[in-house]
Amino acid sequence: MTESALTDSLEAPPRQGGWHGFAADWSSDQRAFKSATWGKAMIWIFLLSDTFIFSCFLLSYMTVRMSTTVPWPDPGKVFALTIAGREIPLILIAIMTFILISSSGTMAMAVNFGYRHDRVKSAVLMLATAAFGASFVGMQAFEWTHLILEGVRPWGNPWGAAQFGSCFFLITGFHGTHVTIGVIFLLITARKVLRGDFESGRRGFFTSRKGRYEIVETMGLYWHFVDLVWVFIFALFYLW
């Protein structure tokens, strides 16, 4: 299990690219995804499954919205905020979008610095990501409060189809849960990076396995996915 011995054995012939590589990878032994570690393959497949969950939520929203005979409230108006005496549509949502995109940017760089073994930069960027994420959740809480005060409930609202509130709370709530979980794991991962767990081979508390910097990338993939979902929610829920 020494690494050097294995590094020697890793002198595999250069891999082909393109379609030949595709066929070669699938017909090879050991691993089908030659560019992915176990953790990365797992998170990708998990995200695929999660994609189906969010898609089902969104298509349910589409179905109830298209089949209702009652007018659907105009999200532009519902989510407008009055700032300095002017009503600006969707302004809060736009800010939330920018925040989440920014967090994705910092996360991408954290992954990069992680692979360069730059622990401090990686951890700081991850903490920044977590901070962006937390502020996103905070703004979502503000938005929820705002709407609840205006009388929007999961079972009804003052402006039209009851499903508006149901879908809103369900979809943003489920997305917000993802963000919250992400923030928690970001904090844990940042602590591990800062402490140097991935250099010293310290074992995980639960799994008692040694971690590697690929965990930062795995974390990053999850976080970008959360951002990705928001892109769809922003377009399909708020802008429709």
Partner: peptide
């Protein structure tokens, strides 16, 4: 890939039952 649909259906029905939504 298929269980997500059931997951979503279960969550929404749970909302219908407990919160009184009308999905």
């Amino acid at each position: 890939l298929a269980f997500p649909a059931l997951f979503v259906a279960s969550v929404m029905m749970l909302f219908d039952r407990v919160l009184g939504t009308s999905f």
